[in-house]
Design a protein around this nucleic acid. Sequence first.
DNA 1: TTGAAAGCGGTACCAA
DNA 2: TTGGTACCGCTTTCAA
Lengths: 387, 387
Amino acid sequence: MSQPATVADVAAAAGVSRQTVSNALNRPEIVRPATLTRVRAAIDELGYRPHASARRLRTRQSSTLGVRLPPVHGISGAVLDRFLHALVERADERGMRILLFTATDLDDELAHMERLVEGSDVDGFVLTSTAHGDPRAAWLGERDVPFVTFGRPWGVPDMDDAPHPWVDVDGRAGLREATAGLVARGHRRIGFLGWPSPSGQGDERRLGWRDALGDAGLGAPPAGSADAGLGAPPAGSADAGLGAPPAGSADAGLGAPPAGGADAAADGATGAGSGSASGAVDLACEDDVAAATAVVAAALQGGTVFDAVVCASDTLALGARFALGAEVPVVGYDDTPVAAAVGISSVEQPLDAAAAAAVELLMGSGRSVLPASGGHRLLAPHVVWRG
Amino acid sequence: MSQPATVADVAAAAGVSRQTVSNALNRPEIVRPATLTRVRAAIDELGYRPHASARRLRTRQSSTLGVRLPPVHGISGAVLDRFLHALVERADERGMRILLFTATDLDDELAHMERLVEGSDVDGFVLTSTAHGDPRAAWLGERDVPFVTFGRPWGVPDMDDAPHPWVDVDGRAGLREATAGLVARGHRRIGFLGWPSPSGQGDERRLGWRDALGDAGLGAPPAGSADAGLGAPPAGSADAGLGAPPAGSADAGLGAPPAGGADAAADGATGAGSGSASGAVDLACEDDVAAATAVVAAALQGGTVFDAVVCASDTLALGARFALGAEVPVVGYDDTPVAAAVGISSVEQPLDAAAAAAVELLMGSGRSVLPASGGHRLLAPHVVWRG
DNA sequence: TTGAAAGCGGTACCAA
DNA sequence: TTGGTACCGCTTTCAA
């Protein structure tokens, strides 16, 4: 067992040529069964394993996908983590491996990608979301390097005809389901807590909330009500909200149409301080627990009444939870361990399906990466209800 | 730019032999400066990059480290995430890359590792903590495959003479610092919330808490008070070390014995009931927010008075926070985004240093993995104070 | 210091 | 179907 066995050894042991060994391994169907058995026996006996680098040199395929490990991801880090996990598994099923790289900025990332491509280290990439004019996409496109993004290419005119394949989760559908679920549970004054516009994902999720309110005849505030850029309040400004008073007044009961009708629900839209009684309030702040707490607390202070709140992230949801207490249902997004731990309902992304779709877009149904192509998948998430 | 350039192309362009090109790349010091310049110019001009697989085939080095992406990691997932990130960077500095693999169980993991090793896909591994008799360590050891673990090898008699190199973070020192910091801030009734024994990391952290109490002359409950083989109690059951007898007689402590002084300072500091006067309570439950909340709440109910609580994890800390409110300081462990978000102090692991140490143990100061060796690094974490 | 030639371990191509 | 041979791109060995 000193020197690892090579094809030559196996060939000799089985009394065949090296080529036959290779065939037995890669295209068993064209080898006569008897020969195959003999070769396989020899392989087992010698403990032979093909040398991956030798094969890659010859075939000019690295069977490797490059993935950038994004810098830092806050509370939602687990999402990428889980996606990565699923990706490794799905890739493995197709004989592909995942090579990691990191980068400090876009230029650095490009440099890394260039090295990997030119060193034939990878056959393609799985990138996180790209935006219009993203230099990575352009660079890869020019060189016909196959890649797929997890996250749609924001900013392109027609996403159905995107410049590159992508996979994404339909946050709009997710928030729609979440909101509808709350409606079904009898809630009526359902607020939304998201990020300031413009934000690709954030705006999508807001739309989902609006959709559901519309579906339920609850009406939604005029589009853009919260877009008036309440600049991100400084973090930590008000974690006093921890002990915030519970929303005092209750909800309209199940089944009973909310008093005041649809439009009334939109009154007073955003912000702290307006004395609106409506719960269909559209709040926004940066993705930070303290900021979220502050925003929600301020809204309560201003007289806003919430029956429930759906959020664009678990971070925001956690903040909202602190401000609202456990009595007012909050739904987050990403189903992070924190949400599970704290008992907050959350929209769970189908990460395994996303990974599978990414691999499929890159490789079709075969075992090698296809030439750069198009296509995309928009996957529906689902709510994990808790509490 | 159709066909990537090879050494031959560069050699031709520079008017030298292929060998000289190779030397210019790998051992520039033995090439005459003039020639070097010429070769480098040709390389730049042609955009030449060495073909990684070809090099690996020839050198029999994959320049790749295998890392298993652990199954699921809860609230502390970010830890591994950040370690991985740092590892990729540190490895990159040494010309090494990180290849991911996953596995459903130990057997599967072994199978994957075997494939990677025998296919010469990796030169070594970075594994998460191993325990005594871990088949992975044995398997790798037998084959002289270099590897290092992040996490010490629990269960070996003498860790200074461990069977393989390891890197770990000194949780004991971390909790000692956390506890001492609380003492310095005037807290006296400092409880500990950890995991049921036996738990390698958990028991270490508990010791750190005890150390600091001892240092401060506050005394700690007799060792083992919570270790009495409470096999992990079901979630939510709040019995664990609850009734831990107060450490009436403290040890000498440093400087002036606190006697009444220190203790008096703690009197009534916390809002719970009366009952037990000691806050040096040693609690334990599984790593779950709800369970932690329950345990702490039960302790409060039972009359325990807490001045502050140090925890074995941010998960537990979050649970404690829920039970105690924001007035009683809680210190967690891992400095996860959640702790930051919620404003809980936490012991931060020096993940970048850990990654650097892992690489160094594997590669020394060179650019290739050394034969399996020994050695280890125990790194001191530090508390990030908040609130 | 530089050059020529021989592999590293597989697979592609072609002939048998 | 099987076997022979060239060759993937680089580095190592040995001469010059």
